Computed example of a mutant assay.
Amino acid sequence: MTADPHAWLIGLEGVPSGFAGARDGIDVLLRDRGLRRTSPELTAESLLRGAHASAVLEGSGSSLDDVRADAGDEIAVSAVRISTELLGLLPVLRQQPLQAFARLHTLAARGILPDEMLGRPRDGEAASKLRGIAELVTAPSKAPALAVAAVVHAELISAAPFGSHNGLVARATERLLLAVKGVDEKSLVVPEAAHLALRPQYESNLRGWAEGGPAGMHAWLLYATEAYAAAADASPLVRP
């Protein structure tokens, strides 16, 4: 039997309870406020808001209105291009995560990097790290689904396996995992907007994950419990 790669986080103080609380909030939102008025338009709005927020975190200067008007800068265009194909990658991420990562990067960097670099890890070390992250996606685990999404997100950021746009790939993967793991199958919460609203904490805790050892990793997971609660509040179900 394959060891659970996420087993280490289950015993961390405040982590299981924090993710349970965040999951309860998302469940309440989707059950009590979403089921009767969920529509493809609401999912599209959530994806658009997420694309804008992810682009800003990647360095875009475009506003949400710019993105709505199809007038965003190059990074925003990349983020929107990802969002238009994102949910079609659900079965790919579930079964072949390496292919999903490659497709996300291709969508992000098309027209920016040379074609031979699209979807390809920077080097052998990056390829090895990417294979390890793919195993985190597919391995059976008793850890909360939200925690798995947070870990994969942080690992993709810290590994920076591609030549550009690693943040866009990581945040898109996080959103996909929330759907794949059954947390938010219609992709109505907006984790990217939560990270943008909490940007100083988001960026400092990502550095902690990469550089701060066990304490930094613990801090990232505690941050993620707060971010996922904020992701529910950012949903178009709450804020039309």
Results as ranks from 00 to 15, higher is better:
M1C: 03
A3N: 08
D4L: 05
P5R: 13
L9H: 14
I10R: 14
I10A: 15
L12A: 06
L12I: 10
L12D: 09
L12K: 03
E13L: 11
E13Y: 10
G14I: 03
G14S: 03
V15W: 11
G21Q: 12
G21N: 11
D24A: 08
I26V: 08
D27G: 03
R31C: 10
R31V: 07
R33H: 14
G34K: 08
L35K: 15
R36K: 15
R36A: 15
R37V: 13
T38D: 14
T38P: 10
E41D: 07
E41K: 05
T43G: 00
T43W: 01
E45V: 14
S46Q: 00
L48A: 07
A51I: 02
A51S: 02
A53S: 04
G59C: 00
G61R: 00
G61H: 00
S63N: 02
D65Q: 13
D65E: 14
R68W: 04
R68V: 06
A69N: 07
D70R: 03
A71P: 02
A76W: 09
V77L: 04
S78I: 01
A79S: 07
A79Q: 03
A79H: 05
S83W: 00
T84H: 02
T84P: 00
E85N: 11
L86T: 00
G88Q: 01
L90S: 05
L90E: 11
P91K: 03
P91I: 07
V92K: 02
Q96S: 13
P97H: 00
P97N: 02
L98E: 11
L98M: 10
A100M: 04
F101R: 01
R103G: 10
T106S: 15
L107S: 03
P114H: 09
R120P: 14
R120H: 15
P121R: 03
D123Y: 12
D123G: 15
G124R: 12
G124P: 11
E125V: 11
A126Y: 06
A126N: 08
L130R: 02
I133R: 07
V137H: 03
A139E: 02
A139S: 13
S141A: 06
A143Y: 12
L146V: 12
A149G: 13
A149Y: 10
V151G: 15
V151Y: 14
V152K: 05
A160T: 13
F162V: 13
G167N: 10
G167H: 13
E174H: 15
L176P: 12
L177Y: 07
G182I: 08
V183W: 07
E185Q: 08
E185P: 08
E185V: 10
L188H: 03
L188V: 08
V190G: 08
E192C: 11
A193M: 07
A194V: 01
L196N: 09
P200R: 01
E203V: 14
E203K: 07
R207W: 09
R207G: 09
W209I: 13
W209R: 14
E211M: 09
E211N: 09
G212K: 06
H218F: 00
H218N: 02
Y223L: 04
Y223K: 07
A224L: 09
E226W: 09
E226Q: 13
A227N: 04
Y228E: 06
V238C: 01
V238A: 00
R239I: 10
P240H: 11
